[in-house]
């Protein structure tokens, strides 16, 4: 399972980078979305995958019974998802505004600030 996940993570990273290197800004954003998902999946895999119960404490007890999954990786991923949601929402607004101003979907036409 772990090696399968590792391959999936690798493919996601590769796809993300390929999309980011395209000239279209829409594809750039798609690349960023894939990239953040790849990072989340990497945390999930690297944190160790165990077939165990969810880490919830039963009613009236102080600690969970038996083997439970590591709650921290899930908390990390949830936080990372929330953050990337916010940032990517911003990125979408940004490219929308940029498109309105520049009237181009081509990164090669956006070189004014590099001269």
């Amino acid at each position: 399972m772990e090696s399968l996940m590792a391959i999936v993570v690798g493919i996601l990273y590769a796809t993300a980078l390929y999309m980011m290197l395209r000239r279209s800004i829409i594809k750039l954003v798609i690349g960023l979305i894939l990239l953040s998902n790849a990072a989340n999946l990497l945390i999930f895999t690297a944190g160790g995958m165990t077939p165990a119960a969810p880490p919830l404490v039963p009613e009236g007890m102080l600690q969970p019974e038996g083997l439970v999954a590591d709650p921290l990786t899930q908390a990390l991923i949830l936080t990372a998802i929330v953050i990337s949601f916010g940032v990517l929402a911003f990125a979408v607004v940004l490219i929308h505004r940029a498109y309105e101003v520049v009237k181009q979907d081509d990164m090669d036409m956006m070189k004014d600030t590099d001269r």
């Binding site: 750039l28 960023l32 990125a91 101003v101 520049v102 956006m110 600030t113």
Partner: peptide, 12 residues
């Protein structure tokens, strides 16, 4: 315009 172009590179 310059801000948008700069921002896209900065953000990415």
């Amino acid at each position: 315009r310059a801000q948008m172009e700069g921002a896209i590179k900065y953000v990415t």
